[in-house]
Design a protein around this nucleic acid. Structure first.
Length: 844
DNA sequence: GAGCACTGC
């Protein structure tokens, strides 16, 4: 029997491109009805357009066919791909479970629901009644039946009854993520089975295996909204406590800090990181009958590891599962799956497959067809998703200043194209966005009355969620066009509605690991073809659109097909630690979809050994095992364990610092005005410490935790991010709990608020020396020329302006982060003594 | 004197 089947979705039963409103998306507000005056005026030239634009005839790319006016060199046909899966509320900006609006991400709640119609519920149930849930589900049924994937229900069931692995190529919009789990959970193979298993120590016992499907997602928001959608479709309550007589929930989700899995759930949406952690404690995934990996094409480090572990598990002897097979459904939105196919096939079905050596891709163009034939031709034809045509225009020649070129294109589009139709421009980072915003705003002041107004909205990761939301708000002012200037956050994570025009700078910042420097740097690099198509697709979600690429057709052809997977770009220390924790002794030989360079791997092994995570024989030490289980980077785990040692005994303090370091946002906000700057320097006096950023963060957390009036007010007065501190507090709680579990802490620490007591300089020294155990290579000593030179590599490095030690001349520094932008910067800096460094180097 | 995007029992 062939091991698997490849499927593609789309389905010719699919209607022609339809407006979003015909799909099941939560809210697909049509753009406002354009008033006639808008259409009449907006095509007129901007007679007072900016001078430099006018000099170039401003409107360079009018489609008048005149070559002198820089007409589009080529127009491409429609871009397929990327239409939201039903129920995926990508239109809303990212929600955090830490948000106060958490409840909004829960199952549908109807105001009229009776709160007390359950008899035996342990937890008061406030959601809708089961009748109401069923009624709502019935209404959704009709929408479900229109999804392309719906008609393939029986094929998919049949295929998985006969195969263990199914690879599905479904465009977003095909409904694969929401529907396939529902097709499968009632299957005979998906039921819990009582079996005898053999433990690793040889003992045998009877346990239940299977009964649940896990669906992985790269993002929390996707896991939560998909679970919410599927729960609604199934008429199932979605929350932990909502088990009611005869009505347990069938669907749940599990993401960090938020676990909503009803007892007896059959379908569970999880983040990739969450499943990876689960695999460390339950390598055989005994709870599950099937794992579905969604969006595998995004190729995060975590998904690559999961794929490696699952491949071994599925093709293994299944002793740890009492012989119960684990079904695997791999889902991707991109066509190219030669690599994935070959990787998951049993090695003997692909003699040309060499484990761990498939850098790039092994593509056998005929492979897909062969696989389908072996499976009785069950392959499903692929057709375009629900996407409007997008015309693509290229530059004739490369642009030196692409930001300026973008400015010209945006002004051209704005003055020439009718309303409605917003513009989305892709830039590389905040700096560029702000520069272009300033320019555009300057010009928009000069537009004559006949030309619509422009509203410029920045959109990037370091904006607060509220500021991000601003970019999504439909501009209500009449005769106004919204221009969103975004980083690649708008490529996959967030979707802006109302966009008809995309301007693509063709570049983005990518993290790149440099093993000889031991540094990860952010580099501006050309995007991949896949990313370019993804970007242009953003123009065709609601109507026919246009995409202007600020690069030539030749540049496009030169682009990589795909982005490089993360595991080939980043420091693999976490990946190596997880492989070791999963019992893989020879990590260099372990087959992955793409194996990192041996140099990177050896570097990681050495680092782990130096941190005391590895035995000389290559197996994990007790500390190494603990490090793998902690939700922290390996270096931070090392620090935490060192802090628990009797000789240091500063675990609680170090947890406070690590909690602050492991938020997804900076704790300290940047003053925007001189007034803020002044107020800040007054209020922050009680938290800043001369020892540096680490002790300052410790003081911040201690002050925050000691506050018993209003933490929000406290944060605001110190110009500290409420959101970051809320997350830091959640991390702190999680770390404390895990330290109790790992027996690093004897008992739960006393609850807050505890009185604030400043850290003594002696104690501060102990704490910083604990950090030095993992960061001894991240140190620099002041040279005779007044600049810091790193001890590892003798590079010149400067203290980043965000550090409390910026501008201070110190004997030596330790830094936890470094960035290379226009200079080599050290961040999270502490003031240390040179002899501490020598002492620590001597120890390792 | 400064910032790609995700994510973790």
């Amino acid at each position: 029997m062939p091991p698997k089947l490849h499927m593609k979705f789309g389905g010719d039963a699919e209607p022609a491109p339809a407006p979003a409103s015909s799909t099941s998306k939560p809210s697909s507000k049509k753009n406002d009805v354009s008033n006639k005056s808008t259409k009449q005026h907006s095509t007129s030239n901007a007679s007072r357009a900016p001078s430099n634009v006018n000099q170039n005839n401003g409107l360079k790319r009018s489609q008048d066919g005149n070559p002198k006016s820089n007409t589009p060199s080529e127009s491409q046909t429609s871009h397929k791909s990327e239409h939201d899966d039903s129920g995926r509320a990508r239109k809303s900006p990212k929600l955090s479970s830490l948000d106060s609006k958490k409840s909004e991400t829960r199952a549908p709640h109807k105001p009229g629901a009776k709160a007390n119609d359950t008899q035996n519920a342990k937890v008061p149930y406030n959601g809708p009644s089961s009748q109401e849930l069923q009624k709502a589900a019935k209404e959704l049924e009709e929408i479900r039946m229109r999804l392309p994937v719906y008609h393939k229900k029986n094929d998919i069931r049949w295929d998985l009854r006969n195969n263990d692995i199914l690879i599905i190529n479904g465009e977003t919009g095909s409904g694969k993520s929401t529907q396939i789990p529902q097709f499968l959970y009632t299957e005979p193979w998906c039921q819990k089975k009582l079996v005898t298993v053999e433990e690793s120590d040889g003992t045998k016992k009877e346990i239940n295996v299977g009964g649940m499907i896990a669906v992985t997602q790269p993002r929390r928001i996707a896991a939560m909204t998909l679970a919410q959608r599927v729960a609604a479709e199934m008429g199932s309550p979605l929350s932990k406590g909502s088990v009611r007589a005869g009505q347990p929930g069938t669907v749940g989700y599990s993401v960090r800090f938020d676990n909503q899995v009803p007892n007896g759930a059959k379908i569970k949406f999880v983040t990739e990181g969450m499943l990876l952690q689960e695999m460390l404690s339950d390598p055989n995934l005994r709870k599950y009958s099937a794992i579905m990996i969604d969006e595998i094409h995004e190729r995060s480090m975590d998904v690559d590891l999961i794929a490696g572990f699952l491949r071994r598990l599925v093709h293994g002897d299944l002793k740890g599962r009492g012989g119960v097979p684990l079904k695997l459904v791999i889902m991707s939105a991109t066509l190219d799956q030669g690599g994935v196919e070959a990787f998951f096939a049993k090695p003997n079905t692909r003699p040309d497959y060499v484990p761990g050596q498939n850098h790039g891709r092994i593509i056998a163009p005929d492979l897909i067809e062969q696989m389908a034939l072996r499976n009785n031709g069950a392959q499903i034809p692929y057709i375009a998703g629900r996407q409007y045509e997008v015309k693509t225009f290229y530059e004739h020649e490369p642009k030196e200043d692409y930001v300026h070129a973008m400015l010209e294109i945006i002004l051209m589009l704005h003055t020439q194209e009718p309303l409605p139709g917003d513009i989305l421009a892709f830039l590389t980072g905040q700096e560029e966005i702000e520069a272009l915003q300033a320019e555009l705003e300057k010009y928009s002041q000069m537009l004559i009355a006949a030309v619509p107004r422009m509203e410029i909205k920045p959109l990037h990761g370091s904006l607060t969620p509220d500021q991000q939301k601003d970019a999504f708000v439909k501009v209500e002012k009449r005769f106004t066009r919204k221009v969103v200037l975004a980083t690649n956050i708008a490529e996959t994570s967030l979707t802006v509605a109302g966009v008809h025009y995309v301007v693509d700078g063709g570049k983005s910042k990518v993290k790149q690991y440099r093993p000889h420097l031991g540094m990860e740097t952010l580099l501006i690099k050309p995007i991949s073809k896949v990313a370019a198509v993804q970007r242009s697709g953003r123009a065709g979600r609601e109507a026919v659109g246009k995409c202007y690429r600020i690069y030539t057709k030749a540049d496009f052809k030169e682009m990589d097909e795909d982005g490089k997977p993360e595991i080939l770009r980043c420091n693999v220390i976490e990946a190596v630690l997880k492989m070791k924790a999963r019992g893989i002794i020879d990590v260099l030989d372990f087959p992955l979809m793409d194996s990192p360079d041996v140099v990177y791997m050896e570097k990681a092994l050495n680092q782990l050994y130096a941190m005391g995570a590895l035995q000389p024989d290559g197996s994990l030490t007790k500390n190494g095992k603990a490090m793998a289980k902690l939700p922290l980077p390996a270096t931070h785990g090392c620090v935490l364990i060192a802090a628990a040692d009797e000789s240091a005994d500063c675990l609680l303090e170090v947890i406070d610092i690590l909690a602050c370091l492991n938020t997804d946002q900076e704790i300290f906000l940047h003053p925007k005005s001189i007034e803020e700057q002044e107020e800040m320097s007054n209020t922050r006096a009680d938290i800043y410490r001369r020892e540096g950023d680490l002790i300052t963060l410790l003081t911040t957390m201690q002050r925050y935790a000691a506050d018993n009036t209003n933490r929000r007010v406290w944060c605001e007065s110190h110009l500290i991010s409420v959101r970051a501190m809320t997350m830091a507090n959640a991390v702190r709680k999680q770390l404390r709990m895990q330290c109790v579990k790992l027996k690093l802490l004897k008992e739960n620490p006393p609850a807050d608020p505890q009185p604030f007591e400043p850290v003594t300089p002696e104690r501060a020294e102990i704490i910083m020396k604990v950090f030095l155990k993992a960061f001894v290579r991240e140190t620099a000593i002041m040279g005779p020329d007044g600049s810091y030179k790193t001890t590892n590599g003798k590079e010149t490095i400067q203290v980043h302006p965000s550090s409390v030690l910026h501008g201070k001349k110190l004997e030596a520094i330790m830094f936890l982060q470094h960035v290379y932008t226009n200079k080599n910067y050290a961040k999270k800096v502490s003031s240390i003594q040179a002899n501490w460094i020598a002492e620590q180097y001597a120890l390792c």
